[in-house]
Design a protein around this nucleic acid. Structure first.
Lengths: 339, 339
DNA sequence: TCCGTTCACTAGACCGGTTTATCATTGCCG
DNA sequence: CGGCAATGATAAACCGGTCTAGTGAACGGA
């Protein structure tokens, strides 16, 4: 037999399509006895809703969209994404919400995808990541009037909700820790300057440097790749004013940097302290293991998903959820300066 | 104005809905002049198809489903998934096909998700990963009559297409390489025994051992975690009959194993050679860097997506695409035995 | 007893496309 | 010039749900 429809249920239960619809959706309009009978029949013939038919009437798609605008090849390398995705998906799964995923070239293409998904009613909401300075996506999702959650923040995202960690406080704690250990020449190997989080971190470093009178603090931008992380490290260590501590914006770059240091005969942590701004097995498995600003990225994803679901439940309310600030986990890659 | 529909186009162009449908889908039934006019109007009012409405008529969903049945937390750790996903998605994106993703607890739940996605017409096809011995999903997708591609293989997957790499040949090449270096006590730290690829690799090791008369070859099963990889290594190195070479089924476990060796004072590669069955930055960034069986997992994903699209285009034809065999990249973690 | 209200349910429109049956023109051929 | 096929277009059914207006019966209060 063909896929059963509510018409089949209606026929077998001896009621109308409307009654079946009411019964299946738990809304008033049918007696309990009839509802039970209808549900039994539905179960019997193994009926399942046809999401397309529902969507046509304006119902939910039970899916949330995520578009990533980064070169696809680099995604597999960064542990951050995969963990965030796991957390997001795990939480969404509990409500049987699927993740609609797409990778595109740039922000413009990303907005195009948003438009088509929204107009095709494929998703109920959107998760925005990698927010840039003056990101056009904010205006786009507001115009599309679709529930959205920005992962990363804080910032002025209009009426768009967000989930964020206090990068600034985290960076300050790292710098203070290094200062206490006696470091004055601190460098920061950061990500792409157009990202908001990169800017926040660099600014936090500058501010801390001013307050603690560390004149030699500076940020070097990279594209987050291990290659550029290594290159930046090489440049720093070969320079005249060699830093005694480097903070990396990702553990991948930190590990690459560690490799460069070893290769150049700079011992870690005695001659150079290293802190990674992101923690994963990567940071724990190296020798020496890396002191890192650790946060539970999986949990971060879970919280982003929860915020998304809250927004879906009540689109009018903007939620700004601050998650735990990354905590410094001291391992073997940091030590006091020698003098 | 509300979302424009083909009725709006029809009105403005002075034709019927049907004519608009024909024109927009490039099928015969309208003159070229009318078609052009309709397309212009559609462009003008910025019309976009409503996927739900299309799906209702039995059209394509322009999405492919992927369900992963592994603990969500572990996914972020394994580079393999993220890279496979990137490759898949990158290729699908070129045809504007989205990936519908969901993480579930077990194979049974996975089949449930398949059923609902198929009956709801959410996806046009399914990608199956982590195939187990006598995997019930094969029968499920055949019963659902939905195009599917098994990633990993080869094996008897009925009429389901597959994309696979020759794990067996790869394992043989690794063992032969070690044998040439003089190793006779070779261990294999593998994954979960219920996975087909785990079995294939273990069997290949046994066969090679028999052929090359290496009596002490053996496989230890783990759950792919770094913790169990480390534990297995500890057990091997502490045992009486310590192996001189270990092959790990993933680079994560290999790195963990390397850590254990260093910790136990076993020098690599002089006292112990290490080969990872999976290559990523992880393997390249350690010291010593790891000799690994390398394949382009991103490309593997791309090929899986291409196979999927071929199957979508012609569901009747089963395709079994063998991809390049992982090649051994020798790095610093392997050397001849000392005697 | 009569009217108003509530309850349970039905019929049918509707969502936005696709597809089929039908029809009017036009062109071609014998 | 008549008959037939091909072409271009239309109207309406259809997909599988949701939702609104409406109906009939039971019930309660004055």
């Amino acid at each position: 037999m063909q896929r059963p429809t509510i018409a089949d249920i209606a026929r077998r239960a001896g009621v109308s399509k409307g009654a079946v619809s009411f019964a299946l959706n738990g809304r008033p309009g049918v007696s309990e006895a009839t509802r039970a009978r209808i549900l039994r029949v539905a179960e019997e013939i193994n009926w399942r809703p046809h999401s397309a038919a529902r969507a046509l009437g304006g119902a939910r798609a039970d899916a949330v969209g995520l578009v990533i605008a980064r070169p696809a090849r680099t995604l597999g390398v960064e542990p951050f994404f995969a963990r965030l995705l796991s957390g997001l998906q795990a939480e969404f799964s509990s409500q049987s919400i699927a993740l609609h995923l797409m990778i595109v070239e740039d922000t413009q293409a990303e907005i195009e995808v948003y438009r088509s998904w929204v107009s095709e009613r494929r998703v109920d909401g959107l998760v925005l990541i990698d927010l840039k300075v003056r990101d056009p996506r904010i205006a786009a999702v507001e115009e599309l009037k679709i529930p959205a959650v920005v992962v990363g923040g804080p910032g002025r995202h209009g009426r768009v909700s967000s989930v964020w960690a206090d990068d600034r406080a985290a960076m300050l704690s790292a710098v203070e820790y290094l200062a206490v250990l006696g470091h004055t020449r601190i460098a920061h190997v950061s990500g792409l300057p157009e990202f908001q989080h990169t800017q926040r971190r660099s600014r936090a470093l500058r501010d801390a440097a001013t307050r603690l009178t560390l004149p030699r603090a500076r940020s070097l931008h990279t594209d987050f790749s291990d290659a550029q992380g290594a290159a930046a490290t090489r440049k720093l260590l070969a320079g005249a004013d060699r830093p005694t501590a480097i903070i990396y914006d990702s553990d991948l770059m930190a590990v690459a940097g560690l490799g460069v240091a070893l290769e150049m005969g700079v011992t870690v942590p005695h001659e150079l302290s290293i802190i990674s701004f992101d923690d994963s097995v990567l940071a724990q498995l190296t020798h020496p293991s890396l002191t890192a600003l650790s946060r539970d990225t999986y949990r971060f994803g879970v919280q982003a998903a929860q915020t998304m679901m809250a927004v879906l439940a009540n689109p009018a309310k903007t939620k700004n959820h601050k998650t735990e600030t990354p905590r410094l986990i001291t391992r073997e890659s940091t030590s006091p300066t020698r003098n």
